[in-house]
Design a protein around this nucleic acid. Structure first.
Lengths: 161, 161
DNA sequence: CAGTTGTTTTGATGAAATCAAAATAACCGT
DNA sequence: ACGGTTATTTTGATTTCATCAAAACAACTG
């Protein structure tokens, strides 16, 4: 038994280890943010805040921003900023993967690289830039929104304006 | 000579035509925004506002936002939202091209597709999504920032903390 | 040239994120 | 286990970017 308590100690300890391993102090808000990200792999600061509050009601939104900034800086978490959404955070890092984003509901889904491990990494004309990363965002409709839109279209055919 | 005046009438008329062709009324603010985008191909609303004000001082920032929204909706202009920058607008549309973004100064440069006309368009596992577009952002250092960073590094070697 | 409709101005409002100072808790060494 | 140092979190204010709504105005139609 550890000082973190006995509930789910193994999982919590491995989280604690990864935080410590990044050179950061292990705190309750940090563990809670990690757990929230395990539940929701592409969550906004606000959504993480909501999840964290359940187990740790005294946590402030600014703390969540602070935790996320520390995680991003130390490479524990990746920050996404899809056009039209607020920033999202994910724990899957270091494996060059990309994202499908639904244009209707903003749902995000991971995709592995289509072409090897570094897709499109070298632009045809880099204009003297040194390229360090290539980020691919696929825009489309998630299955739910396809269904919903099809239903909408059917309804409109019933009531033609 | 046209009702738009004689100065640069040819270019202005072709701008007017493209605006009219998109089903929009031709107005002074709209022409000014188009001209600003010709000068600065990846400009923020705020920067466009600055440029527009020079020739048309009565224009409001909200008008610029309105003009840009109309242009984006009608396909005349494309809106970019690179992570960490405010939205940028460009007139180059309809030709599936991508962007190099400098991680230090946020400069943006166009790049044609590395792999054919629709790069990475089909993700390996689309999880049921219907994909309509793929957007690629290359992150790196522009030539100026490479030089600046190299100079910084050299300076630090002179004064080792 | 007048009417209709779309556009712009004016002014208010909202969401997301950041900054700074004071209070607090984690980790180190003993 | 305990105290000191340093990082973290809280508290509260602020900034930036963008949107909304109503009234004034200007472009296009016939």
């Amino acid at each position: 038994m550890t000082h973190t308590g006995m509930l789910n100690a193994g999982a919590t300890d491995s989280l604690a280890d990864s935080i410590r391993g990044a050179g950061l102090k292990v705190t309750a808000p940090r563990l809670a943010v990690m757990r929230a990200l395990a539940e929701a792999p592409h969550a906004s600061a606000d959504r993480i805040f909501g999840a964290v509050r359940i187990e740790l009601p005294s946590t402030s939104l600014q703390a969540v921003y602070g935790v996320l900034a520390a995680f991003v800086t130390s490479g524990l978490v990746r920050k996404l900023e899809p056009a039209g959404s607020s920033a999202l955070f994910e724990r899957r890092v270091g494996d060059n993967h990309h994202h499908l984003v639904c244009t209707r509901c903003s749902a995000v889904h991971d995709v592995d690289c289509a072409i090897g491990s570094a897709p499109c990494l070298v632009p045809s004309d880099n204009a003297g830039f040194t390229v360090h990363a290539a980020e691919v965002t696929y825009w489309g409709l998630c299955p739910d929104c396809q269904t919903a839109l099809a239903a909408e279209a059917a309804a409109e055919r019933m009531l033609p304006a």
